[in-house]
Design a protein around this nucleic acid. Structure first.
Length: 286
DNA sequence: TAAGGACGCCACAGGGGTGA
DNA sequence: TCACCCCTGTGGCGTCCTTA
């Protein structure tokens, strides 16, 4: 098993760009990286078993976020790439996984939307009054800067505003579409349906269970192995839902499972579940 | 009045504390 | 053990305040 895991770690080095020759240096590299992995965290060090743009920028395994993040070249480049990717709309930027800033490749957005979307317009009882106020304000006018949105929604208190915005981001209703540094640092917010109309039109045809199965398949194709608990926590789904998805993947021989003490290990089949491939025709459009 | 310092605004990750 | 909350430190810019 140990030998097998070493082999999988080497595969990960290639896929997650933890080797110098594959490190992300340009906006094109960053776009291709997200297309290859499907979805990734922004600024994590990879210990959470998730692809990370920051790790890909560093191009090595042993990554630790420095204390002085703003004066660090690798961190600055990652932030710059985040700003550019969001501005170009090359990937969906949200706090979708574990409440951590995440980039999602556009082809996977409908699956995330099928799993998490919930609109205040149709389910107002699920949202706080602050979230509904922000959503309505953006329906009247989108996009808006943070300051404009605070004013127009009537929620000036930062803590309340951040919490409400987080609700809407988790429900994939609002996205950050731009970062402005002058005259004042601010984010620009936009309705997700306006920013990504094509991706958010489709999901009604995808069931929640199908979406979860598709996303776990994508996850394991990228990281090659994970524990069942990691897969469950990542997508914030119940053990029963995750269990059903994993059973289906195992019955299709896409993954193999191993039980060790209290841990269930999931390993992607090398032949039946290869890593994602980039759609070069689509990618060249960017 | 000019120069320099202090502070606030922003989002982010990490760490510590707390409660289930 | 885990999830959640709160606080801290971070840079660049504008604004306000203090000092010479």
């Amino acid at each position: 098993m140990e030998k097998n895991l070493n082999h999988l770690e080497q595969l990960r080095d290639h896929i997650l760009r933890r080797i110098p020759e594959r490190r992300v240096e340009t906006i094109e590299d960053a776009y291709y990286f997200i297309e290859e992995v499907g979805f990734c965290h922004l600024m994590t060090d990879g210990r959470d078993n998730m692809p990370s743009l920051y790790v890909a920028v560093c191009g090595r395994r042993d990554v630790r976020l420095p204390r002085n993040v703003q004066s660090d070249a690798e961190t600055s480049l990652t932030w710059h790439l985040k700003d550019e990717l969001a501005r170009l709309g090359a990937a969906f930027y949200a706090k979708q996984l574990q409440n951590i800033p995440t980039f999602i490749a556009l082809d996977l957005v409908p699956y995330f939307y099928a799993l998490y979307s919930c609109s205040p317009a149709f389910s107002p009882q699920k949202f706080s009054s602050d979230a509904i106020a922000i959503y309505r304000s953006l329906r009247r006018e989108s996009p808006q800067t943070t300051a404009q949105l605070k004013l127009s929604s009537g929620i000036e208190e930062r803590k309340r505003f951040d919490k409400a915005l987080e609700e809407l981001q988790l429900a994939m209703q609002v996205v950050m579409s731009e970062v402005r540094y002058v005259p004042k640092f601010t984010y620009v917010w936009e309705l997700a349906a306006v920013r990504f109309p094509e991706q958010l039109r489709k999901p009604k045809r995808i069931s929640r269970q199908d979406a979860l199965r598709h996303l776990i398949t994508n996850y394991l194709a990228t990281v090659r192995y994970a524990t069942a608990r990691q897969a469950q926590c990542l997508f914030r789904c119940s053990p029963a839902e995750t269990g059903r998805a994993l059973e289906q993947l195992e019955s299709q021989s896409l993954i193999r499972t191993f039980a060790e003490s209290n841990t269930v290990l999931l390993i992607a089949d090398e032949d039946r579940l290869p890593p994602r491939r980039i759609d070069l025709e689509k990618a060249s459009a960017w």
